[in-house]
């Protein structure tokens, strides 16, 4: 049973965590093409490399980021999500007349 180190709670059995998908940048939902949007929703790179992922420690409902190598499954580091997400995100109003 693998050990993952939660940035707030320390090393714990992996069963204490929930996987939340890869960290992905959302294209502008109001201005990207249908294809770009579909790729964002459905596709992932699936390469053998270090990926950045969301993980949540269930007992404390604490979300954080892990960097993991998809080939060896080694977790290289974990850190608070505030290191990647520092600014308030705004969504611009839709242009009038826009329906899709």
């Amino acid at each position: 049973m693998k050990i993952m180190t939660c940035p707030m709670n320390g090393p714990r059995n992996i069963s204490e965590f929930v996987y939340g998908g890869e960290v992905q940048e959302m294209p502008d939902p109001n201005n990207c093409s249908d294809r770009e949007w579909a790729e964002y929703v459905f596709y992932s790179d699936n390469a053998i490399q270090v990926v950045r992922e969301w993980w949540m420690h269930s007992a404390s409902s604490y979300w954080f980021i892990a960097e993991r190598h998809t080939g060896s499954d080694e977790i290289l580091k974990t850190y608070p999500s505030t290191e990647l997400f520092k600014e308030r995100v705004e969504f611009a109003a839709k242009a009038t007349g826009q329906t899709s």
Partner: peptide, 20 residues
């Protein structure tokens, strides 16, 4: 729903407290 909300707000950083 709760864990999704926390994850979204970890990205949006809105001034809101979310409690289950």
């Amino acid at each position: 729903v709760y864990s999704d909300m926390l994850k979204w707000n970890a990205q949006w950083r809105l001034d809101v407290d979310i409690a289950n």
